[in-house]
Computed example of a mutant assay.
Amino acid sequence: MTTRRTFIKQTGALGTLSILPFTSSLGNFQERAQVSPNSKWSDGSRLVVSISMQFESGGQPDNAESPFPQNMEKGFKDLPAETWYQYGYKEGIPRMLDNWDKLGIKVTSHMVGSAVLNNPQLAKEIVERGHEAAAHGMNWSKQYNLPYEEEKKFIQDGVQAILQATGFRPVGYNANWLRRGENTLNILQELGFKYHIDDLSRDEPFIIKVKNKDFAVIPYTLRCNDIQLIAGEHYSTDQFVRQVKMEFDQLYQEAAIKRRQLSISFHDRIGGTPQMVNATEQIIRYMQQHKGVSFKRKDEIADLILKDETAIRE
């Protein structure tokens, strides 16, 4: 248990750090900080980086939201918008896969079932190149309003599509726009999932009880998310790089005394553009210069935290 004296010493060290230039003070702080046994990653990592690669394109409904004005007349298909989505599986994911290989890291790909059925070879390639296939629903429909059995089938159908194409059975789940329903977690536990990511409440994974069994929560991000910042807020790639680096710097500093996880999210038709892949390489290379930073798939993070007796439980 942390005593008040220990707490004051730790927060005092952090306070001192905050008034010093970050680049010059970080090394000394790392040497001085007393790391609580309850804050360490069990594999010895100082900070864990969790990257999502959303595989959604090819499974979108007709006239789905796109950069084009939403002014199509009823009864007509938005053909240019369809090509924007096609970019995701024709160029975006292949480019990102090559970049992950170059950087030597593995990621988690949240796959929409209908997108996988339309491009099964690409889904299979993602898994064959060492990345995790996680479930992302059968299609872009909302699920929070479905009756129990209908929602269960919706999730199962998406799992089956991934299993059929890749041979990998997903253990992680991400609902459309994170909007799970009251029954979702019970269904996931019933179907043998280990974790979900539809949570923004912490900067580290934690454990909850679902059907009286442990279930991992691997928090997601909107702060370091291309669909939120690039497509939604119209950030430039330079702004995106700066924001993610600033997030990293703060979490790396905190990670001297506390278990920390940095999440980043990329979507096939956005994060797979040439400029964004270039930006991603800058970000990852920067992180790789810091000691104790590891890049993990979300299933790996879930396995670590579910076995960790010091994990936060809610």
Rank of each mutant, 00 (worst) to 15 (best):
F240M: 11
P219L: 06
N119D: 00
T23I: 04
K258N: 12
E56V: 05
Q253V: 04
D62P: 09
I312Q: 12
Q30S: 11
T16A: 15
F266V: 02
F215A: 12
M111Q: 02
F68C: 08
K106G: 01
S39E: 14
K213I: 03
S109F: 01
T83S: 15
P219G: 10
L146Q: 09
I227C: 13
V171I: 07
L103G: 12
Y144N: 10
V210E: 13
N99Y: 12
K74F: 08
I19R: 12
N278G: 06
N145M: 02
G59D: 08
I155M: 05
A64G: 06
K194W: 04
L17K: 14
P37D: 09
L251H: 07
T6D: 02
Q289W: 03
H290W: 09
G172A: 02
W41H: 15
F154K: 14
S52G: 07
N145S: 07
Y220W: 13
T108K: 05
A81N: 13
G130N: 00
S66P: 02
T280D: 13
Q164P: 01
L79N: 06
S294L: 01
N225I: 09
A135C: 08
K291G: 09
D203S: 12
L304N: 05
E309Y: 05
D62V: 06
A255E: 02
L229S: 04
H234Y: 13
Q156T: 06
D308M: 13
Y173T: 01
L222H: 10
V277F: 13
A123M: 03
H110N: 14
G59R: 04
R32Q: 14
L191R: 11
S141D: 08
V217C: 14
I207Q: 08
I283G: 13
K213V: 01
E65M: 15
E150V: 09
R95K: 12
S36I: 03
S45L: 05
L306H: 04
V112H: 09
N183G: 06
F76N: 14
Y286G: 07
R285P: 00
W41E: 12
L191Q: 12
D101H: 10
M72P: 06
A311K: 05
A216I: 03
K90G: 04
N63P: 14
Y195E: 11
Y173I: 02
A134C: 01
K102C: 07
Q156M: 13
N186A: 15
I197F: 03
V48F: 12
V171G: 02
R46P: 06
Q250C: 02
G137A: 00
I218R: 15
Q54Y: 10
K298S: 04
E300W: 03
Q34R: 11
